[in-house]
């Protein structure tokens, strides 16, 4: 926190002048359970990607998905909507 800007340098009124900076805020450590993808089962239907509230599901070159663990909060929605049960929620260690 001591590295953050002081009040004289910050934009006034809590404004954020560089929109889209939420990706700089890593929320991955909020997770208690992590989604793990079984690539052999994933069909690349991308239903999980549509449902993910954090936009933390990326499409790989093979058309299947992988998880952005820097931003995934571990809500588990992807796991419950997957039609082929390719995403398992595992305990964070």
């Amino acid at each position: 926190m001591s590295n953050e800007k002081g009040w004289k340098e910050l934009p006034i009124g809590g404004r954020i002048l560089n929109p889209g900076n939420s990706k700089e805020f890593k929320t991955g450590d909020w997770r208690s359970k992590k989604p793990v993808v079984d690539k052999s089962k994933c069909t690349g239907c991308l239903l999980c990607r549509l449902y993910c509230p954090e936009n933390a599901i990326h499409i790989d070159k093979d058309g299947k998905i992988s998880i952005d663990y820097d931003h995934c909060k571990g809500c588990g929605i992807c796991s419950s909507v997957c039609p082929v049960k390719a995403i398992k929620m595992e305990e964070e260690k």
């Binding site: 910050l10 006034i12 404004r15 929109p19």
Partner: peptide
């Protein structure tokens, strides 16, 4: 473009009140 009214917690709120 800018964002107005985002959540402002213990790491910035005090600075904005100081302003």
């Amino acid at each position: 473009p800018h964002t107005l009214g985002p959540l402002d917690l213990y790491d910035y709120y005090f600075e904005h009140k100081r302003q």
